[in-house]
């Protein structure tokens, strides 16, 4: 065996490289390639399924030598920002954006408040902590479809909460979010919070448990009341947990789809539509792919606005530090 020469670095660690092929393919083909493909096609007028990933139709002839270029369909149907113009002029998209905005904002604020308060309560060295946590977290194990259907039933005006309270004598009581266009998104919000706050609570609890117990002792020795300790010492210390939680909630909000499908199907009318549903409907039912691509590119943009600054703060500073 000749071991004197430096081996080809390409073959060093070969098994590891082979083992990483699925990861490399996923990263490059699906995440980078797929995303780029969708973004590029959002500038086209494609209405129906392209037959192939790329159409190798454009042929450049140089003498007797010819070259197919893989962007034929894009060149042929390139329409610039037309899909986006149309998107932002579509009422249904505007409703979707508005809903996402209301749902997102409320869900973000309420998740944080409810999650943190519950975590703080559970962190008081109470008995039955596990029982309480188990009950509050179980909805998270359920799918959005199940969640949506349960709350569709609970909010059913003829049989659900409204009818029960009317039955108790409050005849004029009205609470039927799923059937009134103005407040339907809040009906979805109730279900979403029920499903998701347990997770936020667990994350916050982990954050609280991660705080040095000496801080509490120091605060007590200094005579600082508990609420002040939380507000001025503990919460600022939990900044990293909050940021991570924020990113998790935000990227989840943008994706909201199943819950709407199950609970309201976008109704009444189009009053509870959301972007993800817009994308799906245009891609797979409306046969208007360009719209679907443009809408999904907008979703990507929304996530990028949240994730890129976070990644910069989280990893950029760490590299420098």
């Amino acid at each position: 065996m000749d071991t004197t020469g430096r081996p080809n670095p390409l073959f060093r660690n070969l098994s590891a490289k082979i083992a990483a092929i699925p990861m490399i393919l996923t990263a490059l083909v699906i995440f980078v390639g797929g995303t780029a493909w969708t973004v590029i096609y959002s500038f086209t007028s494609s209405k129906l399924l392209p037959k192939k990933l790329f159409e190798w139709t454009d042929v450049i002839n140089i003498g007797d030598w010819s070259l197919s270029i893989p962007t034929g369909i894009v060149w042929k149907s390139f329409v610039g920002l037309q899909q986006y113009e149309r998107l932002w002029n579509t009422n249904r998209w505007m409703v979707s954006i508005e809903n996402l905005f209301i749902y997102g904002l409320c869900s973000l604020v309420l998740s944080f408040i409810i999650g943190f308060v519950l975590a703080a309560l559970l962190d008081q060295k109470i008995r039955f902590e596990n029982t309480f946590r188990t009950i509050i977290l179980y909805p998270f194990a359920l799918s959005f479809i199940v969640t949506g259907l349960v709350w569709q039933w609970l909010l059913n005006p003829d049989f659900g909460i409204q009818s029960v309270i009317r039955g108790m004598g409050f005849v004029g009581f009205t609470f039927d979010p799923l059937y009134s266009a103005d407040i339907v998104i809040y009906g979805v919000l109730i279900a979403g919070l029920w499903q998701g706050t347990g997770l936020i609570m667990v994350l916050m609890l982990a954050g609280l448990r991660g705080i040095d117990q000496e801080i509490w002792k120091a605060a007590r020795v200094d005579g600082i009341p508990a609420w002040k300790t939380y507000l001025f010492i503990v919460i600022p210390m939990m900044r990293p947990v909050f940021i991570t939680t924020l990113v998790i909630i935000a990227s989840g909000i943008v994706r909201i789809y199943d819950l709407i499908v199950a609970q309201t199907s976008g109704g009444p009318g189009i009053s509870s539509e959301v972007p993800a549903k817009y994308v799906y409907d245009y891609m797979f039912q409306g046969q208007n792919l360009g719209q679907g691509f443009a809408a999904s590119t907008m979703m990507l943009l929304a996530v990028a606005i949240v994730v890129i600054p976070w990644a910069y703060l989280e990893f950029g500073s760490r590299k420098r530090g």
């Binding site: 065996m1 071991t3 004197t4 020469g5 430096r6 081996p7 060093r12």
Partner: peptide, 21 residues
């Protein structure tokens, strides 16, 4: 993996040999 130089064990050049060899 070293950047430069050579390692001999029992007069064998083992610079690029596996640890077990």
């Amino acid at each position: 993996d070293i950047t430069g130089g050579q390692i001999f064990i029992k007069d064998q050049n083992v610079t690029w040999a596996e640890p077990s060899q």
